[in-house]
């Protein structure tokens, strides 16, 4: 398998990471090397093997429905790159 420059550009777009033309070439090469490594697992037969998502075969613990958090808006807003009137500000959202 080999990733094309278009593949790399598409992935970067999906991941919301800006890449320059030069980077696409360099990153593409590295990604292809990595996939060269990854492809080795295709040689193994894994029919009838249950995928393992988690180290423990346990069930999810649930919490009771109760409010346990108080308002910490001021603390949080102090960390925001841009905020006003208790809102996080971002470039215009277009629907």
């Amino acid at each position: 398998m080999s990733l094309t420059q278009q593949d790399v550009a598409r992935i970067a777009k999906l991941a919301r990471i800006a890449v320059t033309e030069q980077e696409i070439t360099a990153v593409g090469q590295q990604l292809n090397d990595i996939f060269g490594l990854i492809e080795k697992m295709q040689a193994v037969n894994t029919d009838h093997v249950e995928p393992m998502a988690h180290p423990q075969d346990a069930s999810l613990r649930l919490r009771a429905d109760a409010v346990a958090e108080s308002n910490r808006r001021d603390d949080f807003m102090a960390l925001a790159p841009q905020a006003e009137a208790g809102l996080f500000l971002v470039p215009k959202v277009i629907e």
Binding site: M41, Q42, V44, T46, V49, E50, P51, M52, A53
Partner: peptide, 9 residues
């Protein structure tokens, strides 16, 4: 999914 199956192995 393949990687998770190998994880099981």
């Amino acid at each position: 999914i393949k990687a998770q199956k190998i994880r099981r192995l």
